[in-house]
Amino acid sequence: MTIAPACPLPLMQHETVQMAHGAGGRLSQTLMQRVFMPHLHNSFLDLLDDQAKLELPAGRTAFTTDTYVVSPVFFPGGNIGELAVNGTVNDLAVGGAIPLYLSTGFVLEEGFSLVALETIVMSMASAAQNAGVIIVTGDTKVVGKGQCDSIFINTSGIGTIREGVNLSCCNLKKGDCIILSGTVGDHGMAIMTSREGLSFQSHITSDCAALNGMIGKVLDAVPMIHAMRDPTRGGVAATLNELAHSSSVGIEINETSIPVKPDVRGACELLGIDPLHVANEGKLVLVVPADCSETVLNVMRAHEHGRDAVIIGSVVNDHPGMVVMRTVFGSRRIVDLPLGEQLPRIC
């Protein structure tokens, strides 16, 4: 049996999520028909089964999951829904997979605006369409006021790994180039400066984007790339440290080559935060053999998400497990893992 999608009529103002929306009864159905299905419907979801039945292409399968809890839920450049789709798509793509299917689970706080929820669902639908993935199954729970912060979203994703591609954090070799796809810190500073209480009237925009399109083009051109990561939480510093640690090699980067947008830099200076420690949601770190680096850069720069791609450093034999930055003054310092949450500081 299929249910024809209901007309996406605008929801009434002031309408909010009720406990009954998650109780499986009539209100749950209303929520499905009025908020979720109009935007997400497809041949899998339309069946309203408890599971999606998938046919996967031959080859190895990649499978990943991530849970999104961002506050504020709406931020300049995106919202939690877009983030939940793009983040999981990127987690598949950096493993060399072609992302195919996503699942999504919502935890909604009682009292959360249904208009806001619908906006988030619409963003998920368009993000999925842009990334070429299908949301095939989902679930919604409602918790009492104060038991979660507005809305949490989990997405899991499945993709098929490309033939002949072997990306791993353990693959780094001396002499490899480290390539960064663009400016650092945009997402984290967009979130931080849009939080209440920090006196910002800023318009720093999140870089939230699906990277599978660009990654596909890069891997078509250069399948022998050694490693790829999306530098989300902990920023580029955390990603580079993980790569150096996993491969037991050193990484050396140049301070002058790290691209930072002017307003992001301004906000980082003001709050005393290192842009290398700030989260990104649409950036890519690649480790490539030096002789392929020009080709990779050219492919990336031709893509909208890689226009500012640049070589930021290289893999070295010295100081295994450590990332070292060469400063503009010729001195060197350790680029360490950030310690937990980035806090604005006055000193």
Binding site: T193, S199, Q201, R265, G266, A267
Partner: peptide, 12 residues
């Protein structure tokens, strides 16, 4: 006042 720090705007 509102102060522009390299494009980031903050109150002071």
């Amino acid at each position: 006042g509102t102060v522009d720090v390299n494009g980031a705007k903050t109150r002071a």
